[in-house]
Design a protein around this nucleic acid. Structure first.
Lengths: 342, 342
DNA sequence: GGATTTGTGTAGATCGGTCTACGTTTTTCT
DNA sequence: AGAAAAACGTAGACCGATCTACACAAATCC
């Protein structure tokens, strides 16, 4: 077996350039106290030896130049769009983004976050994390944290979220303008829901919008979680209702759930949008597939991801007062919303 | 601002337990030379001090207990399924999996892989990487590598792939048994295609299967890449063909491309499967959505992911001869394939 | 022109683990 | 019982960077 070449270390560069290790380190970090002459000399040696600093070793004392992104669910394509926005910004500033996934719940999430901390990540972006707010506050005092998809206020971490109140209003207004009155919502009733979670806020926004239109009597939360499975179940339960008690339109809560419900209703012979309108939330790629064409609310994921990364980096630079960003959502009307027929 | 508690180090544990740091390290690594008495003593101290070894520091000499997964595209849900399989296995053995994404091409891929090496990852799983085989060979001599989705042989890395020859045959056989003769294929004609890449092998499998059925005259590669965009274009080009030159069935190459083509054809008023049958490849979640119901080939992603992780871990343990695993694909018939009508 | 300030470079401790080499004690063998 | 082998612990070098403290030279000040 051929022996692999040994990688150049900072000492090799120092020796080759005829200077001290500290000097090379200074060049590396753009630190004060380096003459132009020395800089070029060192840089030449680095290039010649094909030197790359070992990020791991840097992390022992300084920064690891690594950001961690925590995801509940990789298969939710909206999340991966967010991740891309984060990466874009981070890369411009020389940070690497590594993603960890843990779908099995709070324990797995905790373990993964610890693993990221144990690898000395400089900061964390949590996308739609589980768990109570005070756990996150505790975490935020340990390491710079930005939470994506949960609303503030929070003292020790920043948040970036879609304005879910406005988003829900967008949906209800749209359906009402089409002539619907009996509008239900797939509510995410996860047991550990906290104030500030999208499910909580969107539901509240739905309630408010319904009241605004004088439709309080039709407020109806179809229970479940936001996933394909749960959406299917919710759809089946709707299909099982007697016709008189069935809504004419549905606020899907999130696209994955909305598509699940769509599927179940479709299979039960309930035609969309003739028999029932559905509007989702998130504008994931699958919603655009033409035979479906799910009307939905777009959150401009890349934008949110970029925002989150910028906040995180400024926090790493030392900012301590928390910031909370709301991104305005936008309604996208496709083919699953139409005037009621009954 | 409240000061955060200082984290316990190995020295703290050693002092608390009244032993040497080396002893604690031995307990940690399950190394030889620890009496049961000392083990329990140390473990008690660790629990009491809430000690977690800093993975970063461990990586300086020993293992970092971190596996890197490289992904071209997070939004391809098949890839995320693979990643899950990897994580399952890795976690059982105390390894963490961190995912990196780089969709912009070879350079970005190279940078990301370097970043993972610079963080001293113990091994890498590359999912559908770009680039020539000898680049990968070179990489494989630097760090344990398993490539997912590229066929062997390879000397310095392992591969796990779907048996794409068989998969293509499955599709062609199925379509032929329905009565199709004029079967085209969305061929991925990326400029940097290498032998062993799925696109190459699937296309070859298609050619072979067509020949086997005596349909060589109808062999037809619709050029493009495997992505939604490119699928759309291919679909449009098919729709633009005069009816007499249009195939009655289409081997989609990959689900994302097949769905793109489906979309374009649908929009052009070509009805699936009445006017044209389409079969995809990968069985991504969106294919199952009922109004679509794309017939496809399943590769059992979780299984492949697990295999890859097992290979990688055994390679980290010291195995040097390379292994190459082929996973048998399975046809899933849904609603987009039917007998031809013309 | 001597004192002070500024600029440039180095030595060496440090981060938190791992691992080799070696000393001491206990067990096994003949 | 004495020798050899095995079991158990520890000291201290080491991994590859960062960072503080300090030495020395050059520039600026009064």
């Amino acid at each position: 077996m051929t022996e692999q070449l040994k990688r150049a270390t900072i000492s090799d560069v120092a020796e080759h350039a005829g200077v001290s290790r500290a000097a090379v380190s200074k060049v590396l970090r753009n630190a004060y106290g380096v003459s132009p002459a020395m800089r070029t000399k060192v840089e030449e040696s680095m290039a010649l030896l094909n030197y790359r600093p070992l990020a791991l070793a840097r992390g022992m004392r300084g920064n690891s130049y690594t950001l961690g992104v925590f995801l509940v669910d990789l298969s939710n394509t909206f999340f991966s769009v967010l991740a891309e926005g984060i990466r874009d910004v981070a890369e411009e500033l020389g940070y690497q983004v590594l993603i960890g996934q843990a779908r099995q719940g709070l324990d797995a999430q905790q373990k993964l976050i610890e693993a990221m901390i144990d690898r000395r990540m400089d900061g964390l972006v949590l996308i739609a994390p589980f768990g109570p707010n005070d756990e996150l506050e505790k975490l935020g005092r340990t390491i710079p944290v930005v939470v994506l998809g949960r609303h503030g206020p929070a003292k020790y971490f920043d948040t970036v979220a879609s304005d879910d109140i406005a988003g829900s209003a967008l949906i209800v207004d749209h359906l009402v303008s089409l002539g619907h009155e009996r509008i239900s919502m797939l509510a995410n009733t996860q047991p550990d829901s906290e104030p500030g979670m999208p499910q909580t806020v969107r539901r509240h926004g739905y309630d408010l919008a319904m009241e605004k239109h004088g439709l309080s009597q039709w407020i109806d939360h179809v229970p479940g979680r936001w996933g394909t499975e749960s959406g299917l179940e919710a759809g089946r339960s709707l299909a099982a209702r007697p016709l008189a008690q069935r809504p004419s339109a549905l606020h899907g809560g999130a696209d994955v759930a909305a598509l699940g419900a769509y599927t179940a209703l479709f299979e039960a012979g309930i035609h969309i949008p003739d028999d029932m309108s559905i509007v989702g939330y998130d504008n994931i790629p699958a919603t655009g597939l033409p035979p479906i064409g799910l009307s939905t609310v777009d959150q401009s994921g890349v934008q949110m991801g970029r925002q989150a990364a910028e906040l995180l980096l400024s926090r790493i630079e030392g900012r301590t007062e928390s910031e909370h960003v709301l991104v305005s959502p936008r309604l996208i009307v496709r083919k699953t919303s139409a005037p009621p027929r009954r």
